[in-house]
């Protein structure tokens, strides 16, 4: 290789560096990558509602209507009466089978062994969750398993009403719709800390980082 004079080398490096800096200074535009989803695609994907209920679709249902749908689409895993079946495909958690109804107690700290004479405590989802829209989400987004998200809004309102009814939280003929569902008050709402959703993201105020890195 021919020897390259140093001054040429310096000039070459200066141009190279200037080129690099120039290239870095302007990030190329990413427009054109990705496409707009079609309204049908958005509708299929856009399931679920927050506690305010603003994402709830139009529709309605009662527990009476929900019972009919439940018998066909849900009872094989969740039991004839919402009692849950051990070993069913949906019994995926550490807890008992997917029990839906019959709730009669909110969760309590267990310091010692349970009193054998006390009536059995059934802590169903409705007696644990903070918001009724979580029941909606479980049915509208997660269920039925292997056909998740396949129920219509009317079906989901009916089944949500059915679950609430089976936990004695609403009456069998109460109509659940986008106005009435968010207003149902679940028994365990005030157990959660921090109680307000607005406070959830303030880690330092919550004291999560210290002393062990676990929220109090």
């Amino acid at each position: 290789m021919r020897y390259l004079p140093f001054k040429h080398f310096v000039a070459g490096m200066a141009v190279f560096v200037a080129g690099c800096v120039g290239a870095l200074a302007q990030t190329p535009s990413l427009s054109g990558i990705g496409r707009a989803p079609t309204p049908e695609e958005l509708a299929v994907l856009d399931k679920g509602a927050g506690p305010s209920g603003k994402d709830l679709p139009s529709g309605k249902g009662t527990a009476k209507q929900g019972a009919g749908i439940y018998a066909i689409k849900c009872a094989m895993c969740h039991g004839q009466n919402g009692e849950g079946i051990t070993g069913a495909p949906s019994s995926q958690t550490f807890f008992k089978a997917a029990r839906l109804g019959g709730g009669n107690a909110t969760p309590k700290w267990q310091s010692g062994p349970r009193d054998p004479n006390a009536p059995p405590e059934i802590i169903s989802g409705s007696f644990y969750f903070a918001f009724p829209t979580t029941i909606w989400n479980a049915i509208a987004v997660y269920m039925p398993q292997f056909r998740a998200g396949s129920l219509t809004p009317d079906e989901v309102y009916s089944l949500t009403a059915y679950v609430l009814f089976k936990n004695n939280l609403i009456k069998e003929e109460d109509v659940m719709d986008r106005e009435t569902l968010p207003k149902v008050r679940l028994p365990n709402r005030d157990a959660f800390v921090p109680n307000r959703i607005e406070d959830l993201q303030d880690w330092d105020k919550r004291g999560c980082r210290l002393p062990y890195g676990v929220c109090p």
């Binding site: 506690p51 550490f94 807890f95 310091s111 829209t133 979580t134 997660y142 959703i197």
Partner: peptide, 17 residues
């Protein structure tokens, strides 16, 4: 707002003394 969804409304919470 959060969902909450199933795996943050019950399992994945912890009860205190």
């Amino acid at each position: 707002e959060p969902g909450p969804f199933l795996r943050e409304a019950r399992i994945y919470t912890t009860i205190r003394g």
